[in-house]
């Protein structure tokens, strides 16, 4: 006789729970570790350099004897800050531009979307490097660089959604009821595009984290002493060739695991706002 130890769960429920658990663990780590363990993540200990993972240093130490676990947590803190702020910046810009273009229509729409095309035709990492190079290294130039180069896709998504909403009879009904342009935009169009814009924002967080890492890896992001995931992987490049895998692997996992968790949540969200599902619920 089989005794079920766990209630049967659908694959989707499992995915949601695992993703939520991972995101919660990551959020807890970046918020609590610096409070609970007031250790200096930049403390150099040359006597203990390049120790493999052990009980004293769970993730080992890097080529300057710094604890990889502690530095990874601090690095993730920076990466998440950059990721979330840059994604929000890009989403606000993209939603504003896309909504304005879609709601105005005609010549304004064509002009704005051609400008978007021009920006899109330049590789955005290159554009990001150009922006970063104008400032002194630090967190905020990276945020600005990623935020200013990633609103294009959101603008396209929001514009397409606004165009489709604009021709619905309920917009006609609102106009007939005396609603101003502003009211139609704020009351009917904006709430209609928020699920799509929100999904774009969530998907952009991991993307922005990767960008921060890429810029730091290229030596253009954060100052080199600052623990960031990109900096750590960049520093560990040399030791990887000597067979010391842990200074590269663990920061790498710190990028990949939150990315997968956030992408998992975004996937569930996307299923929920899928137009077909939505219309099935409505009819």
């Amino acid at each position: 006789m089989r005794i079920p130890l766990l209630p049967a769960l659908s694959a989707r429920t499992v995915r949601v729970r695992v993703s939520v658990g991972l995101v919660a663990a990551v959020a807890g780590a970046v918020l609590l570790v610096p409070l609970l363990f007031p250790l200096d993540e930049q403390a150099v200990d040359m006597a203990n350099k390049l120790h493999p993972p052990s009980w004293a240093h769970l993730f080992g130490t890097d080529d300057l004897g710094r604890d990889v676990l502690l530095r990874s947590v601090y690095g993730l803190r920076v990466s998440l800050l950059v990721g979330v702020v840059a994604a929000l910046t890009a989403t606000v810009i993209g939603t504003a531009v896309g909504a304005a273009a879609g709601a105005s229509g005609g010549r304004v729409d064509r002009l704005v979307m051609r400008v978007v095309d021009v920006f899109s035709s330049v590789p955005h990492l290159l554009l990001g490097i150009f922006i970063v190079a104008m400032f002194r290294p630090g967190v905020w130039p990276v945020v600005i660089s990623v935020g200013l180069t990633h609103w294009l896709s959101t603008a396209r998504i929001v514009r397409a959604e606004v165009l489709s909403l604009r021709s619905r009879p309920y917009i006609d009904a609102a106009i007939s009821g005396g609603a101003s342009r502003w009211r139609v935009g704020v009351r009917h169009l904006l709430p209609g595009v928020l699920p799509q814009a929100g999904l774009a924002a969530v998907l952009m967080v991991p993307h922005a984290i990767w960008h921060e890492s890429a810029l730091s890896f290229l030596g253009l992001g954060l100052p080199t002493h600052r623990a960031s995931l990109g900096n750590m992987i960049q520093d560990a490049r040399g030791t990887l060739l000597a067979g010391d895998w842990w200074p590269t692997l663990f920061p790498g996992l710190f990028i990949i695991v939150p990315t997968l968790a956030i992408a998992g949540l975004a996937g569930v969200w996307r299923e929920r706002i899928n137009p077909r599902r939505r219309s099935e619920l409505m009819l």
């Binding site: 009879p169 005396g178 101003s180 139609v184």
Partner: peptide, 26 residues
């Protein structure tokens, strides 16, 4: 549409064929 003076727009009430499409789902 929006360029019509509000008094003229609201002087005509409209009922559309499909209530599903004529009502903001939110």
């Amino acid at each position: 549409r929006h360029r019509a003076p509000r008094a003229q727009r609201t002087a005509v009430g409209v009922v559309f064929q499909q209530p599903r499409l004529a009502a903001d789902p939110r």
